[in-house]
Write a protein that binds this DNA or RNA. Sequence first.
DNA 1: TTGTAAGCGTTATCAG
DNA 2: CTGATAACGCTTACAA
Lengths: 356, 356
Amino acid sequence: MTGSADDPKPRRRPRLSDVAQLAGVSLGAASKAISSPDAVRPRTRLAVERAVKELNYMPSEAGRALASRSTRMIGVAMPTLHHPVYASFFHALQNTLAERGYLTVALAHDFDREREIVLIERLVRRGVDALVLIGTDHAARTIALLDRVGLPYLYSWSSDEALERGAVGFSNRMAMHELVCHLAGLGHRRIAMITGEVRYNERARLRLKGVQEAAASKAMELVEVATAPLTITGGLDGYRRLDPVRKGVTALVCGTDLMAAGALHGARQDGFSAPEHLSVTGFDDIELAGVLTPPLTTVRAPIAEMAHATGEAIMAMLKSGEAVPTQVLPTALVVRASTGPAPAEPHATVTSFVSR
Amino acid sequence: MTGSADDPKPRRRPRLSDVAQLAGVSLGAASKAISSPDAVRPRTRLAVERAVKELNYMPSEAGRALASRSTRMIGVAMPTLHHPVYASFFHALQNTLAERGYLTVALAHDFDREREIVLIERLVRRGVDALVLIGTDHAARTIALLDRVGLPYLYSWSSDEALERGAVGFSNRMAMHELVCHLAGLGHRRIAMITGEVRYNERARLRLKGVQEAAASKAMELVEVATAPLTITGGLDGYRRLDPVRKGVTALVCGTDLMAAGALHGARQDGFSAPEHLSVTGFDDIELAGVLTPPLTTVRAPIAEMAHATGEAIMAMLKSGEAVPTQVLPTALVVRASTGPAPAEPHATVTSFVSR
DNA sequence: TTGTAAGCGTTATCAG
DNA sequence: CTGATAACGCTTACAA
C-alpha cells in the first residue's frame, strides 16, 4: 500500500526546503507563502500549496519556534485538574487560545507552592510565550523568576486583591458577602463555615473574609470555622468536626459545592435535613449542585467567561507588550432549596431526631 | 567591555555558549557537562555548574528539540477533561511522564472524531515524541496519519479489542458482566440500561455488550436501553425517558457513576428509592459514588494504575522502538447500598408510594 | 515580490 | 575527554 519498488528509502519527513524545491521557489518564498499567503504572488502561493499537499508537508513547530523565538505555547500553573471548575477553566482557556493558534499547556501543583515553582521553571524552559497564574497568592521567588526572565504573565481567577499587573477574575469576597446576606434575610443568626486551606490560597481566604465581614455587618455570629480539603470527603469530614446542628448553628456556609455535597451527606447521616434543620450553601455552581438533595443554594462562578477573558487578555498582553487592566466578572447568587428560614428553635432539633 | 557608564544592556537570556565561555570550556563540553555530567572531567563539570548558577542559565528546550529531534513531549488526545476519570487519568499520566523529563500535553476533542484528527495533526506538528490515544475506536484517517509520519502511539483505557499495536486498559465488557451477575444474584430479572453514545466509543459499546451478554446468560431481560450524555443531567434525562419502575424494571445499569447520580436523583423525584424500588449501578467509582444517597454500587476502574502503566509503556515504546504488548488491568466490583434484592412484586410499588 | 544568507540554541560527529 | 564544526528546520532581514 505504501511500498513501491524502491522501498528502502529513509522517508525523511518533508521539510520546507523540499516544498520550496518541488514548487520551484526559494526557501524564503515558500516560508512566506505559508505564513502569510497574501504577501506573495498568487502563482507562487499556488505552487507552494500544491507542493505542500503533494508532500504531505507539516511545518515543524520546533524549527519555527527557534527561529521566531515564539513557541506559541501558553502555560498555566493550575492548582489541580481534579476539581470540575479547574478542569472547565482549562478546557475553555485551551479552546480560546487554540483559535489563535496557541497551545495551552497545563501543569498541576496540587496546592503546593514549592511544586509550583518547579513547574513554572519547567514551563519557562519550554519557552512558553506567556503564563497564566491561578489566583494571586504566589511565592515571591516565583514572581522574581518570571520578572527576571521577562516572561509575560497574568493573574486569573481572583480579582479581589488589586495588583499592578492586572487580574482577570471575580470577587470571592463580594460573592460570599451576597450569599451571607441571603442567609441573614432568612433569619439565620448563628452560622458556621467549612473553608479550604487559606494558606497560600487567597480564594479561600477571601471567601472566609467575605463571610466574616457579612456576618459582622448583619450581626450574625460566625460560630466556628473548619478547614478541610476542597473535596466531597473534605466537606463530610468538616461537617462531622463542626457538628453544627447540635451547636445551635442554623446555616452552614461551604467554600465549594463539592464540600457542600459532603456536608449535606453528613447532615443526612445524622438525621438532619436541609433546609429544615440546617441551611447549607456552596460555591461554584457545578453541575452536581443542581441535583443534590436538596438542590444547592450557591454562587455561580463565571468560569467559562473568565477563561475566555483570560485568553483574550493574554493575547492582548502579547500584542501590546504591556500588562492589561484588571477585569472583574460578575458572580450570581443561585438560590435553590438547600437554604430556607432559620428554624425557630434551633436547639430543639437536637433531640427530636435520631434516625439516620 | 559592557561596563561603560551608559549601559543599555539588552539582557539577552544566557545561552549555552555564554556558560561555556564563562566556564572556560568549549560549547560541546558544556553541553555534555549538563546533559551527562558523568561523561566529563569533574573539573569541567564544576566549572560549568558554577557558570550555570552564576548566569541563571536555563537550557532552551526549543534548541534542544531541534538538534536532538525530540521534544520530550507526549501528546494525549482526550475525549474530555470535564469528566473526573479523564481528569484523573491525565493528572496521573502527567506525573508519571514528568518523572522521566517529559511534558504531557492534553487536548480534548469532546467526543468528536473530526476534531480529534485536527488535534492530533496539531500535536504532530508540535513534534510530540509519542501519542496516547484514549480508547481503540479511531478514524482510519487518524491512524493513517500517525503511521505515515511514523509517530509512535499507544492505545489506552480499553483492552477489550485486542490490537496488534497493544493497549493498556481494562475490560469494560467483563466488568459489566460481573456487575450484572451481581444483580442476577439479587434476583433481578428485568433490567434496563442508560448508556453513553456508543458510536465512536468502544468503552460505551463494550459496556453495553457486557450487559447484554450477561443478561442473556442469566436469563434476564434487558427491557430497554436509553442513550444519554455521560453527565449527571444525562442520567437524569435517561431515567425520565426510561421510567423504569413503571415498566416493571427492578435494576437500572448506568454507563458511568455520573449518569447513575442523575438517575438516582430522578428516581427520588419520582418518589422511588434505591434499592427498595429500584437497584441502580454506576461505573468508575469516582469520589461522588460513595456519598450518594444511597451509596452507589459500581465498578472500580483502575484509572491511576492505568495512567501509570500507560506512561511506562510509552517510555518502553520509545526506548525499544517497538509496540508493547497489551496490558489488562483488573477492575473490581464495589457493592454498596444502591443495589439490593429485587422487590417481590415490582409493579405493586407504582401506586404504593407517593411521598416526597 | 523573491532569493540569499545569517541566525535561533542546542546536540552530534569526529578529529585531536 | 575536549574542541571545532556541522547539522536541526525554520524565520527574517537585506539585497536583488
